Amino acid sequence: MDVDCSLPVVAKRLAQAALSGESERAEAINQQLSPLWQLFTQYRGSLRVIAAAASIMGLTERDCLPRPIQPLPRSAINDIAQLVCELELN
């Protein structure tokens, strides 16, 4: 991935490529993030996955979601931590 690989930066690059018609670049970024999209599907949405990723990256506490939303189980956190490392997200 690119030098600056924070989630917001990568998401912005994906959106900019798509909006500017750079379909090959957008598809390349999308493919790099496909494991993340798979986790969104596996855990039925992006909110808890992104909250867990933010916690892993030290941006928030583990239990940062408002009630009644519960954090993902430890096994899911481990999956997300592995993905954060694999994608070199920081």
Rank of each mutant, 00 (worst) to 15 (best):
E86Q: 09
P68T: 02
I29Q: 09
Q70M: 08
A11P: 08
A53W: 02
P66V: 01
L19N: 10
L19M: 10
R62Y: 10
V10D: 00
R48P: 05
A53G: 01
D79H: 09
I69L: 07
M1R: 15
Q16T: 13
L59I: 15
Q31M: 10
M57C: 12
E22K: 14
S23V: 13
I29L: 09
A81I: 02
N78Y: 15
D63T: 02
I56A: 14
A17C: 13
W37H: 11
Q70R: 14
I56H: 10
A26M: 10
P73M: 00
E24S: 15
S55E: 06
A15E: 04
E61P: 10
I77K: 13
L47C: 11
S20N: 13
R74G: 13
Q42Y: 09
I77T: 14
A52P: 01
M1A: 06
T60L: 05
E22G: 09
G21F: 03
K12N: 06
P73S: 05
L36A: 01
A15F: 04
A28E: 12
S46Y: 04
E88D: 15
S23F: 15
T60E: 03
S23Y: 15
A11Q: 05
P35A: 06
S34E: 02
D4L: 12
L7V: 10
R13E: 07
E27A: 06
E27H: 09
L47D: 01
R67A: 07
A15G: 07
E61N: 15
L39G: 08
P71H: 00
L39E: 11
Q70H: 09
Y43P: 01
G58L: 02
R25E: 08
A15K: 14
K12I: 09
R62V: 00
E61A: 13
C5Y: 09
Q42V: 12
R62S: 05
M1C: 12
E88Y: 14
M57V: 00
A11M: 05
M1W: 08
L36D: 08
A81D: 10
Q38Y: 06
W37A: 09
R25K: 13
G21P: 13
I77S: 14
S46M: 11
G45S: 03
L65D: 07
V84K: 02
L89H: 00
Q70Y: 06
D63W: 01
A26D: 10
W37L: 01
Y43M: 09
K12P: 03
F40P: 03
S75E: 15
D2S: 14
I50W: 08
I50V: 07
S55T: 10
L59V: 11
